[in-house]
Design a protein around this nucleic acid. Structure first.
Lengths: 131, 131
DNA sequence: CTCATAGTTGAATACATATTCATATGTTAA
DNA sequence: TTAACATATGAATATGTATTCAACTATGAG
């Protein structure tokens, strides 16, 4: 996923539009772009969901609170790999944790997360039948 | 993003659950997992949206049909970079193209795409205020 | 036909990242 | 205290991938 992320400068837009087919459309499109900050945040969000292991963790935690060990046991992951991925999910605000003794319990942070997840599943179902 | 993708085998689940805290929870979680095929498709979908340039292309095409040159001009991208990223989006079923003479016009494939995009924006807005 | 233009594609490069291994931190039990 | 455990973390390795550059294809103009 991402945080330090390749510098990935969003290029300066060029004023002169001579080689363009439809100038009005180009300007309208430019006006509709989200800011650079939001674009990067959004890319980070989707990057976080772009890994099978993290998706499986999200599915695992959908409607359940579980400790790190049980999450790993559910998915056949080493404690280390589990912890690394949970950190990524935590840093992106997709999961929340609380400590109880030496156990740490995780849940999805809010409904937005499982919504995105299910929306994604719907999309692939849609593609499956029509694409 | 992804297609040949690291082998990334989803590990076999282990029957013996002795070291587990809450066996019932672990089995429930396992039952809720999507299949390996869907998990990978979903990861590919989110990978496709995990890049700022592609996100900007999606924003550009939201409600607009544009030729490759104009998309590039809107975003300050080289024709080659634009074309490469459009191919990724096309292969994932996020955009559709049709040719007219020597121009190729692109649009978002369907409403699902801008829905996912906007849902993502909502999530980061939500994080912004509460996280 | 010949040239310019719109777009595509493959290889190379530079950077991002998932897992593992070794180790560290903090917590409970004996 | 000492030992065992639950989790976290840093470095290393192997792999994924976005952009550029240099061809290449297809179309239309002269």
């Amino acid at each position: 996923m991402a945080r330090p992320r390749r510098d990935n400068q969003i290029p300066e837009l060029i004023e002169d539009c001579e080689a363009v087919c439809d100038t009005a459309l180009v300007f309208a499109a430019r006006g509709a772009l989200p800011g650079a900050r939001d674009t990067h945040r959004l890319a980070d969000l989707f990057s976080t969901l772009a890994d099978p292991t993290r998706l499986r963790i999200v599915a695992t935690l959908d409607g359940r609170e579980m400790c790190v060990g049980d999450i790993g046991a559910s998915l056949g992951l080493s404690p280390s790999a589990t912890s690394h991925q949970l950190r990524v999910l935590r840093q992106q605000g997709l999961v929340r944790s609380h400590k109880d003794g030496r156990m740490v319990y995780y849940t999805l942070d809010d409904e937005h997360v499982s919504l995105l997840f299910r929306q994604g599943l719907e999309h692939i179902a849609h593609i499956e039948e029509s694409g």
